[in-house]
Design a protein around this nucleic acid. Structure first.
Length: 443
RNA sequence: GUGGCCGUAGCUCAGUUCGGUGAGAGCGCCAGGUUGUGGCCCUGGAGGUCGGGGGUUCAAAUCCCCUCGGUCACCCCA
C-alpha cells in the first residue's frame, strides 16, 4: 500500500458529522419516532442498496433516475443502486413480504444522489418519513399530512406552509399531462430553451419552473382542477375538510406537481419561507397508488412523506429554534494521587448511571480543574492525598461556585444520586444505540 | 453538466493588488504565574506540505498553466 499523494478525504458532496450536529440529528429522529409510534407506525429499515429496477419506477424521465443515481454492476453482474429516496424500497419491502394492511411504517435514513452539491442539498442526505400501504380512505391522507405538520411545528418552526394539491388518479393525471404537453407545445416559442426540452420528456415538471419568463407562460396553462374525476374531487374535498377539522392550516396550489412519476391524487409540500426558494421545500409527499403494482405486487394504495433533515435544520437555524441538545455530564473526577482513584471512582459512578468523565495522563490540580470546567460537568470530585488518606472526596459544584463539601467515599455515589433525584429522568438518556445509518432528508 | 467566488496554523482569517526583510493575528490547545482548586487576567510554548503538480524568475503564499477540493447560483430536485 502506497500512501496517497494527498490525505484521504470525504467524497464530493459527502460530509462527516460531529457532535453538535449528530446530537441534534438524533434529537430530531427521537422526536419524530415518538410521534410516529404514538400514531401507530413502526420502524422499517430497507437496505441502502437495491436492484436498480426498484428505483427506475420513480420515472425514467426524471433526472433522479436518468443521471443522479449511484448505480453500478455488482460482482454477480447484477445492476444495483444506492437508494436515491426511501419510498421505493419500502414499497418493494411491502410487495416482497406482504404484511397485513394497513401497513404503517416510519423510517429515518440516508439516501444518495449524485448531483452537484448546493446549499441544503448533498450527495448523501438524510430523511425521516412515513409510508402507509393498503388504505384508500382520504382520512388517512389527513392523518399523514397532520403528522408531517405536527412534526415541523414541534421543532418550533413557524414560518412554514403546508401546500396541497391533487394530481388526480392515473387517468386524470394522464389526461392532464397530455393537455399540459399540448399547451406547452402551442406556446413553445414563448418558452425558454430549457423549458421546451423539459416539456418534451416531462411536461408537468415545467409547471413549477422558477424561471420568470416561463412562469408567465405557465400562468395560462390548464389547471389540474379541470381534469379531476368526480372521485378524485370527492377525495380531495374530504382531505380539505379533515385538515380544517384538525386545525391544520394549508394552502392549495394547482401547480404543485413534484418530481417523481409515481404520485397520484393527494400531493403536498412543506415550504419554509425563511429559506431561499432554491431550498425552501423542507419536506413533501403524497399518494402513490400505483407504485406497488409497478413493483410487481398487487394493486395497493399508498401514501407517505419525507422530511429533509438538512433543510429542516437550515430552516431551524433561520428561525433560531431546535438547537442541538447540550451534553450532560454529572461529575468530573480530579485525581492527583496517581490516577487509581479516578479509575475506580469513574467506573463506580457510571455503573450507578451517573454521567462521569475524567482526564488521563495526570496533570496538576489546576490543569485537571480546567479540564473539569471545560467538560461542563456539574461537579468536580477531588481526590488528593488528604482525601485518599481520610477516605473522603471533596465535592465542588462547578456551576454555583459555592462552598465545597467533603463526603465520605463510601457514601459519595448515593449522595450524588440523591442530589439529582428531583430532576432525575429529564435529559438523561442511558440507552441508545442508533447505529450505522444516520437519519434524514427530502422526498 | 454550466458559470461565479474561494482554498494560508485545529478553527476564523490578514498577508496576494505593484513577487524580495526570519509566514502572522485572534480563538482554541499545552504549561506557568497561584508547589491542593476551574471560569477572569498575565506570561511563555507547541502547532503550517501557504490544497496539489508544473512553469516563469536571482527570488513565488504572491505571477501563469493544469489539477483536486470547497462554496454559491443555474440545470435539476426537493
Amino acid at each position: 500500500m502506497v500512501a496517497p499523494e494527498q490525505p484521504f478525504r470525504t467524497l464530493t458532496g459527502m460530509h462527516d458529522l460531529f457532535d453538535p450536529d449528530t446530537a441534534r440529528r438524533r434529537a430530531l429522529v427521537d422526536l419524530f419516532a415518538t410521534r410516529a409510534e404514538q400514531a401507530g407506525y413502526r420502524e422499517v429499515r430497507p437496505p441502502l442498496l437495491e436492484e436498480l429496477g426498484v428505483f427506475q419506477r420513480l420515472g425514467e424521465a426524471t433526472d433522479v433516475v436518468s443521471k443522479e443515481m449511484y448505480e453500478f454492476e455488482d460482482k454477480d453482474g447484477r445492476r444495483v443502486a444506492l437508494r436515491p429516496e426511501l419510498t421505493a424500497g419500502v414499497v418493494r419491502a411491502f410487495v416482497q413480504h406482504h404484511p397485513p394492511t394497513p401497513w404503517k411504517v416510519w423510517y429515518a435514513g440516508t439516501s444518495f444522489r449524485r448531483e452537484r452539491p448546493a446549499k441544503g442539498r448533498y450527495r448523501s442526505f438524510d430523511q425521516v418519513g412515513v409510508e402507509v400501504l393498503g388504505v384508500d380512505d382520504p382520512d388517512l391522507d389527513v392523518e399523514v399530512l397532520a403528522l408531517a405538520w405536527s412534526t415541523v411545528r414541534e421543532l418550533g418552526l413557524r414560518d412554514v406552509r403546508l401546500v396541497v394539491n391533487s394530481l388526480g388518479d392515473g387517468d386524470d393525471r394522464r389526461n392532464y399531462t397530455d393537455a399540459v404537453a399540448a399547451f406547452l407545445h402551442s406556446r413553445r416559442s414563448d418558452l425558454s430553451e430549457a423549458a421546451v426540452a423539459t416539456s418534451e420528456r416531462n411536461p408537468l415538471r415545467v409547471l413549477d419552473t422558477k424561471r420568470p419568463e416561463d412562469r408567465a407562460v405557465i400562468a395560462d396553462a390548464p389547471s389540474i382542477a379541470e381534469f379531476l374525476s368526480p372521485d378524485s374531487v370527492a377525495h380531495l374535498d374530504r382531505v380539505r375538510e379533515g385538515l380544517r377539522a384538525l386545525g391544520v392550516p394549508f394552502t392549495e396550489d394547482d401547480r404543485l406537481v413534484r418530481g417523481l412519476d409515481y404520485y397520484r391524487r393527494t400531493t403536498f409540500e412543506l415550504v419554509a419561507d425563511s429559506l431561499d426558494a432554491a431550498q425552501n421545500a423542507v419536506g413533501g409527499g403524497g399518494r402513490y397508488d400505483g407504485l406497488a403494482e409497478d413493483l410487481g405486487g398487487p394493486p395497493t394504495d399508498g401514501i407517505g412523506f419525507a422530511l429533509g433533515v438538512d433543510r429542516l435544520f437550515l430552516a431551524c437555524d433561520a428561525e433560531g429554534v431546535f438547537p442541538a441538545p447540550e451534553p450532560v455530564l454529572d461529575a468530573f473526577v480530579v485525581d492527583t494521587t496517581g490516577g487509581g482513584a479516578a479509575r475506580d471512582l469513574v467506573h463506580e459512578l457510571r455503573e450507578a448511571r451517573l454521567a462521569a468523565d475524567r482526564r488521563y495522563g495526570g496533570g496538576s490540580l489546576r490543569s485537571q480543574m480546567k479540564s473539569a470546567d471545560r467538560s461542563g460537568a456539574r461537579w468536580a470530585l477531588l481526590v488528593g492525598t488528604d482525601e485518599l488518606a481520610a477516605g473522603v472526596v471533596t465535592v465542588r459544584d462547578l456551576r454555583t461556585g459555592a462552598e465545597q463539601e467533603t463526603i465520605a467515599r463510601a457514601e459519595l455515589v448515593g449522595a450524588l444520586l440523591q442530589r439529582l433525584a428531583p430532576t432525575a429522568g429529564t435529559g438523561r438518556d442511558g440507552s441508545d444505540g442508533r447505529d450505522d445509518e444516520r437519519e434524514g432528508t427530502r422526498t
